[in-house]
Computed example of a mutant assay.
Amino acid sequence: MEELRSERHPARAEIRKRVLALLLVFAAGVACGAVGYHVPVHRIAGISPADGQQNGTQTPPVRPTTPGGLCGAESNVIQVARAVGPAVVTIVNMQRPSGSSELRRAGFGSGFIVRSDGLILTNHHVVAGADRVDVVTLGDDPIPARVLGADPRIDIAVLQVERRNLPVVPIGSSDRLQVGQQAIAIGNSLGFERTVTVGVLSALDRAIPGAGTPLRDLIQTDAAIHPGNSGGPLLDSCGRAIGVNTAAVRGPAGTGGIGFAVPINTAMRAVDDVTRHGRIIVPWMGISYAEISENLARAYDLPVEEGVIVSAVAANSPAARAGLRSGDIIVSLDGAPLTSAGRLQELIREADVGQRVQLGILRDGRRQTLTLVLEEMPREQTVGG
Rank of each mutant, 00 (worst) to 15 (best):
M1Q: 11
H9L: 13
A11W: 14
E14M: 13
E14V: 11
E14D: 11
R18V: 15
L22K: 14
G29P: 01
C32D: 12
A34N: 14
V39W: 13
V39F: 11
P40D: 05
H42V: 08
P49W: 01
V62W: 10
R63Y: 01
G69R: 00
G69I: 04
L70K: 13
C71F: 12
G72A: 13
G72D: 15
Q79V: 09
V84E: 05
V84I: 15
N93I: 01
N93S: 08
M94V: 05
Q95T: 12
P97D: 04
A106T: 02
G107R: 07
G111M: 00
S116M: 07
D134L: 14
V135F: 09
G139H: 00
D140T: 10
D141R: 13
A145V: 08
A145E: 01
V147W: 09
G149K: 02
G149A: 11
D151E: 08
V158E: 07
L159H: 07
I171N: 02
S174Q: 04
S174P: 06
L177D: 01
S189K: 02
L190M: 14
E193C: 07
T195F: 09
V196M: 04
V198I: 05
V198D: 00
L204P: 02
A211Y: 11
G212C: 10
R216L: 01
I219K: 02
A224G: 05
H226M: 10
N229H: 10
N229F: 04
G251P: 12
A253K: 03
F260M: 01
V262K: 06
A270I: 02
R276C: 08
H277T: 12
G278W: 06
I280M: 11
I281W: 09
G286N: 00
I287K: 00
S288G: 15
E291D: 02
S293I: 04
R298A: 15
R298H: 14
E306K: 10
A315I: 12
R321P: 01
L324H: 07
R325V: 08
S326E: 15
I330Y: 07
L333F: 12
A336W: 12
P337I: 09
L338Q: 09
T339G: 07
A341M: 12
R343W: 04
Q345A: 13
D364F: 06
L370Q: 02
V373C: 08
E375D: 12
P378I: 10
